[in-house]
C-alpha cells in the first residue's frame, strides 16, 4: 500500500506517549525534592506525586509498546497535507494573538486578531471587518472593565491613550 503524504498515526502515538512519559519523569524528579516515603503521620508530601509520576511513565511506556506491536494497523494517516494546512491557518493567528495579548494587552489583541481573521480568512471587506473587530473589543471593555469590574490587561497602547 503506497503511503500518502502526511503524518502517520503511528508516529503521532509515539510522539504523544513520549511527551506524556517525559512529563511523568519531570513529576518524579519534582517529587524527589520532598520525602517520598510513608512517614509516621502518613504519606510525606512527595509520596503521591512520586507514584503518580511513575504511573504516568508506565502508562506511556504501555502505549508505546502497544503501538509498536500494532505497527501495521497504525499506518493510517493522522494528519494529511490539507488538514495540516487548515490547522496551521487556525493555530498561527491564535499564537500571534497570545503573543500580542501578553505584550500589547488583550483588547488590542482582540481587535487585531478578529480583524485579521475576518479580513484575510473570512474575506470580508476592510471597513466591515474593522467595525466588527473594534466594536467587539469596545464591547468587551464595557462588559469586563466597566460593568463587571474585572480588569483585563490593557497594555502600553491603551495606557498611552489614558485608559488604565
Amino acid at each position: 500500500m503506497p503511503r500518502s503524504a502526511g503524518l502517520t498515526r503511528f508516529a503521532m502515538e509515539l510522539v504523544v506517549a513520549g511527551a506524556t512519559g517525559l512529563i511523568g519523569a519531570v513529576v518524579v524528579a519534582g517529587a524527589r525534592e520532598f520525602g517520598t516515603g510513608w512517614g509516621v503521620a502518613g504519606p510525606e508530601p512527595g509520596y503521591f506525586p512520586f507514584y503518580i509520576g511513575i504511573l504516568i511513565v508506565i502508562g506511556s511506556l504501555g502505549t508505546i509498546v502497544a503501538t509498536l506491536v500494532r505497527r501495521q494497523r497504525e499506518q493510517r494517516i493522522f494528519l494529511d497535507a490539507e488538514q495540516a494546512r487548515r490547522v496551521a491557518i487556525f493555530c498561527g493567528p491564535m499564537l500571534a494573538f497570545v503573543i500580542v495579548a501578553s505584550t500589547l494587552g488583550l483588547y488590542v489583541a482582540t481587535a487585531l486578531y478578529l480583524f485579521g481573521v475576518m479580513r484575510w480568512q473570512g474575506g470580508y471587506k476592510t471597513g466591515f471587518a474593522t467595525v466588527v473587530a473594534v466594536g467587539t473589543a469596545v464591547g468587551f471593555y464595557f462588559i469586563f472593565d466597566v460593568w463587571f469590574q474585572v480588569p483585563l490587561l490593557k497594555g502600553p497602547i491603551l495606557n498611552w491613550l489614558g485608559i488604565y
Binding site: 494573538f97 488583550l106 478578529l114 481573521v117 473570512g122 470580508y124 467587539t136
Partner: peptide, 15 residues
Amino acid sequence: PLAIIGPVIVIVCFI
C-alpha cells in the same frame, strides 16, 4: 458566520 464567531470564541476562551 464561522469567520466571526470562531475567533470570538477563541478570544472569549483566552479572556
